[in-house]
Simulated scan of single mutants.
Amino acid sequence: MHSYSTRQRKVLLAYLSQHPDELLSARQIADALADKNISLSAVYRNLAQLETEEKVRRSSKSGTREVYYQYLDAEGCKGALHMSCIKCGKTFHMADGNAALLAKLLAQSEQFILDTTDTILYGTCSDCKGK
């Protein structure tokens, strides 16, 4: 039994590490891993464990009750400020210099320390802007 859950965890982590900049629902993850014999309940169980370990972050999009998960343990994601498009759902990193500038401005003008590791900015990406 234990090796089974370890296999599921490895498959899930491998999948998440290939999609570090995406907000994925448990259903999307389960659908993508359907050929690997991993059930939706197993995906939820493993995601809950990974959230406890701070390897994934759970968030919800405004206006919906659906929960999305994002893999945080990827090298390029550590400390990055994320931006997420409310139309297509694509998530990407803000350029380091811009994130640092925003954090500095907030600290100076608002006396507010931004936690860039746990913040997602929502808006419309350039691909969706013209649609």
Results as ranks from 00 to 15, higher is better:
residue 115 D to A: 01
residue 19 H to T: 05
residue 106 L to V: 03
residue 89 G to E: 08
residue 54 E to G: 05
residue 14 A to N: 09
residue 49 Q to G: 14
residue 96 D to Q: 08
residue 4 Y to W: 08
residue 30 A to D: 03
residue 41 S to G: 06
residue 32 A to W: 04
residue 74 A to C: 07
residue 75 E to S: 15
residue 51 E to C: 04
residue 53 E to T: 12
residue 20 P to G: 08
residue 54 E to Q: 13
residue 104 K to D: 12
residue 49 Q to C: 14
residue 128 C to E: 05
residue 112 F to D: 04
residue 36 K to S: 07
residue 117 T to H: 07
residue 72 L to H: 04
residue 101 L to H: 15
residue 72 L to D: 09
residue 83 M to A: 13
residue 99 A to K: 00
residue 12 L to P: 00
residue 27 R to N: 11
residue 11 V to F: 01
residue 128 C to S: 06
residue 17 S to N: 15
residue 55 K to Y: 01
residue 104 K to R: 11
residue 31 D to L: 11
residue 33 L to Y: 03
residue 15 Y to S: 05
residue 118 D to Y: 01
residue 40 L to F: 13
residue 68 Y to I: 02
residue 117 T to R: 09
residue 36 K to N: 05
residue 19 H to M: 08
residue 114 L to P: 02
residue 52 T to E: 15
residue 4 Y to I: 11
residue 126 S to F: 13
residue 51 E to G: 11
residue 93 H to W: 04
residue 95 A to G: 09
residue 46 N to P: 03
residue 128 C to N: 06
residue 19 H to C: 09
residue 100 A to D: 10
residue 70 Q to I: 10
residue 40 L to G: 05
residue 95 A to D: 14
residue 118 D to I: 00
residue 131 K to N: 13
residue 93 H to D: 10
residue 102 L to N: 02
residue 37 N to K: 09
residue 114 L to G: 08
residue 65 R to N: 12
residue 122 Y to H: 14
residue 107 A to D: 13
residue 32 A to E: 03
residue 34 A to Q: 10
residue 60 S to F: 04
residue 87 K to M: 08
residue 83 M to I: 11
residue 116 T to G: 01
residue 108 Q to G: 05
residue 53 E to S: 14
residue 61 K to G: 12
residue 112 F to N: 05
residue 39 S to D: 01
residue 86 I to C: 08
residue 116 T to F: 01
residue 71 Y to M: 12
residue 116 T to P: 00
residue 118 D to E: 10
residue 111 Q to T: 12
residue 3 S to K: 02
residue 39 S to P: 00
residue 63 G to Q: 04
residue 37 N to F: 01
residue 78 K to I: 10
residue 90 K to Q: 14
residue 117 T to V: 01
residue 44 Y to Q: 12
residue 116 T to Q: 09
residue 59 S to L: 10
residue 95 A to R: 12
residue 103 A to W: 04
residue 6 T to C: 00
residue 119 T to Q: 03
residue 109 S to W: 09
residue 40 L to W: 06
residue 34 A to E: 13
residue 15 Y to P: 04
residue 6 T to Y: 00
residue 125 C to K: 06
residue 99 A to S: 07
residue 29 I to D: 02
residue 48 A to Q: 11
residue 83 M to V: 10
residue 120 I to G: 06
residue 28 Q to D: 07
residue 36 K to C: 06
residue 112 F to T: 02
residue 22 E to H: 14
residue 29 I to Y: 02
residue 30 A to Q: 02
residue 109 S to P: 00
residue 87 K to L: 11
residue 45 R to H: 12
residue 13 L to F: 02
residue 118 D to V: 00
residue 113 I to A: 14
residue 43 V to L: 05
